[in-house]
Design a protein around this nucleic acid. Sequence first.
RNA 1: GCGGAAGUAGCUCAGUUGGUUAGAGCGCCUGUUUGUGGCACAGGAGGCCGUGGGUUCAAUUCCCAUCUUUCGCCCCA
Length: 445
Amino acid sequence: MALSTQPYKGARDFYPEDKRLQRYIFAKLREVVERFGYEEYDAPVLEPLELYLAKTGEEIVNEQTYVFEDRGGRRVAIRPEMTPTVSRMVAAKRQELAYPLRWYSIPNLWRYERPQRGRLREHWQLNVDIFGVAGIAAEQEIVMVADAIFRGFGAKRSMYTIKLNSRKFIDYMLRDYLGLDATQASSIGRLIDRMHKIDRANFITQAEAVLLPSQREQGVVQRLLDVLDAKRMSALPQQLQSHPALTELHQMLELLKASGITNAEFDVTLMRGFDYYTDLVFEIFDTNPENNRSMMGGGRYDGLVGLFGVEPVPTVGFGFGDVTLANFLESHGLLPKLPSDTDLYVIVAGDAGVMQQALKPVATLREHGVRVAVDITGRKLDKQFTTAHKKGIHYALVIGEQELSEDVYTLKNLQTGTEEKRSIPRIVSIIQDYRHPSEALDNEL
RNA sequence: GCGGAAGUAGCUCAGUUGGUUAGAGCGCCUGUUUGUGGCACAGGAGGCCGUGGGUUCAAUUCCCAUCUUUCGCCCCA
């Protein structure tokens, strides 16, 4: 039986054109976060399993993490997320780092689950974190970075919504205001998380199932609904409005607005899982009704670094998966046509001897940084041109006996079809202008 | 892990009420004066009808299993 050509379930092959897109997206991500002073780090794709047991529930580790035993009998996980790893790294050098840390990474992550659209087993996720700032200036900056990423890809603010909530506030609301115990609060939290997927009657039924008879008699469900129905903070019950976490959220929204971020809003139903977040949580949603899903999210998690036995470090961060980002960009028409990374395709008009001579001017081009591929097949010119075009290369350079003797070469722009004879130094500058048109303009200013 | 849908050419899909040589568009290859791609014209290659089993004189077609894809549930780092 023949070997399958399919990649492993839920994993992806990156053919050059796919990789080209990924490189474009990653380059843009790096450019934007580095504009805010974030520095890139990286870490092993393998971690001891305990790293994930300490923080999250057993269930997640058992069911959704790739785990194996190494030859020394150690239980090893393929990292399903980056946050525990980066927390470990910070804890390891807790006392020698220059706070605040602004760190980012684009790790390859794996989770063992059934693949769906926008959710594969393998993905890449931009992680951006700021360590060592306890005040909301950190939250403000992190949300601004997330917003700047969308802006950097050319998204308009009408294309996405930034939703904010506070875990402190939610905990207070569930535990103190509604009087739920820890287990009930957790169940209701998960129910709130999916309340937009189910109808109201269903929500009520499921909420009541969590409660004790005495709680149902006290109208806890109705009081919960009154909270969840609030579209604005001012619509919340009076007792909740005075909570400090809500005041902070209000300040956050004002700060963001002052920074030009007009598409941020409070959403009391935003839960963002039930793991390590300690205060503000946020998610960014696609406003396109056909893809109305959360694309990325984050928040404050002040407790993780402290799990490693050092003084805790206040932290705010977010993760942004490449698949959801690419889906967003595609559905909004924000993906540019990406030309080949190769600048020039050399078309050899002549025999093997001509090709050998052509390598000399080609070497000069390469020394000047021009990326040149030479057609070494000896095929007819039309085949060589077809190949250049199919590869998406912007320029073709014809080299034959005529060109070699004159030391000027036929440069053809494959987009426009125009063709002109140029010297090697001239070709170098044409390619440089083509590759960095904005820099050429900047230099004139 | 649970439920629904789908797998036919490289891609998007027709089709066979079970019957001999399975089709289209696009793509690919060759050619239309051997120094010029996209367009046009002509020709051509390419399918164990996802895989394995069952029923049948006969299966791409019906049944079962399995793999893969996809939608939803669960979960969401």
